[in-house]
Amino acid sequence: MIRPGTIAEAWHVLQAIPEFDQRRSLAQLQDRLPAGALVLIAEVDGQPVGCKLGYGAEDGTLYSWLGGVLPAHRKTGLAQQLLDSQEAWARAHGFTSITVKSMNRYPAMLRLLIRNGYQIRLVEQVGDPAKERIHFAKPLS
């Protein structure tokens, strides 16, 4: 089940995702997310196991900032459900496009984005291909 959630719930999920090497405090998440930001929680048996955070960017797009699914619950369709819910939320709130950044070291995320019509707009070259930041955008119709 995908539902609106709190920043604290999302923070607990993010702390348990092993790929994230930059740990943020709850206060850092709260500082970054403006009032009215998107906070989605994927829940299984009443427990949060995934999340998606986003907010309106200066250019009027929804910036899909941070999210993930706990390893034990991957390949169950939850990431797709979070993405679908994010797009529906963005449309309902008047956004005409979604932007997101990812990296080569997250191939499952790259495949999910491309499979769902997100287009590569820019690749930030940093020397290490695994750490290159790939910028995606998807217009919402």
Rank of each mutant, 00 (worst) to 15 (best):
H73F: 15
Q47G: 03
L122V: 00
V13T: 04
W65K: 06
P34H: 10
Q15E: 14
Y118C: 13
S85D: 11
T61M: 01
R23M: 10
T6H: 01
L53G: 06
L26E: 11
L38H: 05
E132T: 00
R74W: 01
V126P: 00
E19L: 11
L66Y: 07
D59I: 05
R105Q: 14
G77D: 03
D21N: 13
L140Q: 05
E9C: 10
I7Q: 02
R105H: 11
A130F: 06
V39E: 00
F136P: 12
V126G: 10
L140H: 07
S102D: 11
Y106T: 14
W65T: 03
L82P: 05
L140C: 11
A92V: 09
A108I: 11
I114E: 15
S64E: 09
G56P: 01
K131P: 00
V100N: 15
L14G: 00
N116C: 04
I114T: 14
E19K: 04
N104A: 14
H73L: 09
Q30N: 09
Y55L: 05
E124F: 01
K52N: 07
Q125M: 04
L113W: 12
H135T: 06
R24T: 02
Q22I: 14
R115L: 03
R23S: 12
I2D: 12
E9P: 02
A130E: 15
Q125E: 11
S97N: 08
I7R: 07
G127L: 02
V126M: 10
I17P: 02
P18N: 07
G77M: 10
E124L: 07
A108F: 08
D59G: 04
P139T: 13
A88N: 07
V123I: 15
E19S: 12
S85V: 00
D84Q: 13
L110P: 01
I17W: 01
H73N: 11
L113A: 08
K131D: 14
T76L: 09
L112H: 03
G94I: 15
E19C: 02
V44P: 01
I2H: 07
L53S: 04
R111Y: 02
G5R: 02
T76F: 00
Q15G: 03
Q86H: 01
L78C: 11
A88R: 14
L140W: 13
V123S: 03
R115C: 00
A130Q: 15
V69S: 02
K138C: 08
L62H: 04
L112T: 15
G50Y: 03
E9T: 10
L40Q: 03
M103V: 13
L33E: 08
R133T: 14
S141Q: 09
R91Y: 02
T99D: 04
A130N: 14
M109P: 03
A108N: 14
I98Y: 07
Q28Y: 05
I17S: 01
T76H: 05
R111C: 03
Q30T: 13
Q30M: 06
G54A: 06
G54D: 11
E43P: 09
L62Y: 09
V13L: 05
L29V: 00
H12N: 08
R133K: 14
L140F: 12
H93Y: 04
D45G: 06
I114W: 01
G117V: 06
R74M: 00
D31N: 08
S97T: 08
P18Q: 08
S25T: 15
G46F: 11
G68Q: 08
A57V: 04
T76E: 10
R111S: 10
L40A: 07
I2A: 07
G94T: 14
L66K: 02
R105F: 04
P18M: 07
